[in-house]
């Protein structure tokens, strides 16, 4: 029995277990706090993060422009102009 207990103490098993539990709780409490303040932070920073639609790349518009350019290219090739 002593030898088995020795295996725990010589490997600092109790210290490792205690430190591990504390660290897991600490990190997850930090994550929890971060999530808790997120809505308030977003309410404050919301106007800064908002961008007008005109500032954003419009994939649909880009696709339409590419299609028009391709059609024009094909037409010009066909007519030889």
């Amino acid at each position: 029995m002593n030898e088995l207990w020795q295996n725990i103490t010589s490997n600092q098993g109790l210290e490792l277990a205690a430190a591990g539990i504390v660290l897991v709780f600490a990190v997850l409490i930090l994550v929890s706090l971060c999530i808790s303040v997120l809505p308030k932070l977003l309410a404050w920073a919301g106007p800064l993060l908002d961008r007008k639609d005109a500032d954003l790349p419009d994939d649909a518009l880009e696709a339409e422009l590419a299609a028009v350019a391709a059609a024009m290219h094909a037409h010009l090739n066909r007519t030889g102009k």
Binding site: G13, L16, A17, A18, G20, I21, V24, F25, L28, I29, V31, S32, L33, I35, S36
Partner: peptide, 18 residues
């Protein structure tokens, strides 16, 4: 977010098993 702590508590089993 408070329910996150339950996810931490369950990990006590890992260290007890260690």
């Amino acid at each position: 977010p408070k329910l996150i702590l339950l996810g931490a508590a369950a990990q006590i089993g890992i260290f007890a098993t260690l």
